[in-house]
Design a protein around this nucleic acid. Structure first.
Lengths: 229, 229
DNA sequence: ACACATTAAATTGTCGACACATTAAAATTA
DNA sequence: TAATTTTAATGTGTCGACAATTTAATGTGT
């Protein structure tokens, strides 16, 4: 099951389709990170004109999946540790604020819907192969709903429309499954409780801790891998 | 004197030039907020082909100055009070975090350079017509330098490369000069002191208060205007 | 006169070709 | 042989034209 981006607009034009295909291809590493993009080659590969391809490239640039330089060309972003940590810092700031406003702006229906979601997640998590599903889809699902719950269009566009494609890319490329799954689940529960209590200040603090803990967990794993590869 | 965006890349192609012209035209209201953009008309006006214009439109969309819908067209964003408040919320989150990391990552040279800048600002402010210059350029200059001082490329791109064009647009369209100028200057001093003390936590708190105060000031002015126009 | 269907005009999306810049290869010179 | 200049090739930027869609105008029926 694939979690759709809630900000995704309808796919009508062929440039839209190509954009989607390339987005998946880049996120999942089919088009390697850091590789240069040849417009004539890709256009032929997708059987479209260069104009249409360039339209798709522009949207990929919008969500920071490729970088373009004038008269030089496009290049898929490369996944560096520094970039990953910077992304987490940014998420901590934005999602923390989104969580604060979710506590203010979410409707009671939205909140109870999220509670149900967490319950079903916990069941699937207990029943099935443990951490995999929750870590991948469930976590993103939870964060998406919080961000949408802020009812702040600016935050929603920035995080869901731009940053989260990068987040998914890093997850794929670095393969982040960790022992933090069950702890992350507990943290989600506490965050939702703060929102349910309409305690925006606490909700922001907890969300920031949640993301910071995830970042520190990654930093630690990187450090371990660096010592004994 | 015009404060250049530090993230601005070299202007080489004609699409770059058109992008810059349109950016100014939109920010300063020459192309009215909320108006629809006719591609054939504008292309003829700038004496370029539609392809080149569309390239420029794509970049305008990247910094949230226009919105596009498939098969419908482009439209300049309109400046609403809700949009302005959302923008301030986002700035509070991002610049707060940037300020925290500026306290960690700025070099001693960068910090002393900023201190000098504030001194010269205070002199110009005392000498000249009071609040105008400082409110417009000096404030942006200060915030830019803090963001750059975070040394976080993700934050820098998001804030300077995208959000700040919108910030400038709102300043122009809503004409925000206020009695907060001298107080804002004092707040800048305190923020820089926290950075100089390498106190990231305090630096973030002060920056968030600084932006939140500005937001509340606007909310109050809006409320007054609504009561007795 | 109003609602709806049909046609016409205008606008956006896509295409292929050409102009220009960059990079790679070949040739010239020290 | 190594470095530098010339030349060829590849790739990006820009253009004008056609196809597909949306919007405006016209016409028809009740």
């Amino acid at each position: 099951m694939y979690i759709d981006n809630p900000t995704k607009q309808a796919i009508v034009t062929t440039a839209d389709k190509v954009f989607e295909r390339m987005q998946h291809a880049i996120v999942e590493g089919e088009i390697p990170a850091g590789s240069k993009i040849s417009e004539p080659e890709l256009a032929k590969s997708y059987q479209i004109s260069r104009s249409t391809l360039r339209e798709a490239l522009n949207r990929l640039e919008k969500c920071h999946l490729i970088e373009r330089k004038a008269n030089i060309g496009s290049r898929v972003v490369d996944c560096t540790i520094e970039g990953l940590l910077e992304l987490y810092i940014t998420r901590e700031a934005l999602e923390g604020m989104a969580c604060r406003h979710a506590a203010i702006n979410m409707t009671d229906e939205e909140i109870s819907s999220m509670k149900q979601m967490l319950v079903s997640h916990s069941q699937e998590k207990a029943l099935q192969e443990g951490v995999a599903y929750y870590q991948e889809e469930g976590d993103l699902d939870f964060h998406y709903k919080i961000i949408l719950g802020s009812h702040n269009q600016q935050l929603i566009n920035l995080i869901c429309g731009q940053l989260y494609h990068l987040v998914r890319m890093y997850r794929f490329q670095f393969g982040m499954q960790s022992a933090r799954a069950s702890r992350a689940y507990d943290e989600h529960l506490h965050i939702l409780q703060a929102i349910s209590d309409r305690d925006g200040e606490l909700a922001e603090i907890l969300m920031r801790r949640h993301i910071a803990a995830s970042r520190k967990n990654i930093e630690q794993k990187i450090a371990e891998q660096t010592l004994k590869p």
